[in-house]
Amino acid sequence: MADLETLRQAIIDGDAKTAGAVAREAVAAEMDALTVIQQYMVPAMDEVGRRYECEEFFVPELLLSARAMKAALEPIRPLLAASGAKPAGKVVIGTVKGDLHDIGKNLVASLLEGGGFEVIDLGADVSPQKFIDAVQSTGANIVALSALLTVTMPSIKMTIEALKAAGVRDKVKVMVGGAPLTQQFADQVGADAYSENATAAVTAARRLVAAG
């Protein structure tokens, strides 16, 4: 019998090996995938987020936990799909055109995944057209845009305008983030949400989905 408490702790400790092993045991024991995720894995990531918020954890710990989460999700995901369970939401994420920084974006992507979202990561230096194509082909309900440089911030605005021009802006919620961004900037460019850090992004995404 898989010890799910160990799984929870392994995710908090960033121990991918143990997390993956326990998850495989859980699958072998035919445990309910949704229960494992919702009662152990998501709460573990929430705890990681809490520790990050109160400055106990920093980027490396956050990333290790996200990796442990990923390792645990790997064997469980096929079961989840088979059970017909729906993800919390579908997010298309990317760093905007002209900007190659993707540490922050990767972190947000991992945490969203850990938070039960299906994430389509387009990478860095992503053109507006690629965002539009991804939204249309995946039916995502959230687009998350990242920029780390003051000089690439205008790319966020361009991307949002391109979404409008392509007629898909109304179909999705837009979240923005990155070191030089502010709530004020998010308001100016007409984004639906801004988050100051990776863990707040998960909260913001949940709020957007809840608001429909």
Binding site: V59, P60, L100, H101, A124
Partner: peptide, 16 residues
Amino acid sequence: LGGDAEFQEAFIENMR
């Protein structure tokens, strides 16, 4: 280094 995946990995490792 900006677009180097190996750098980003090393960066995170070296934060500790």
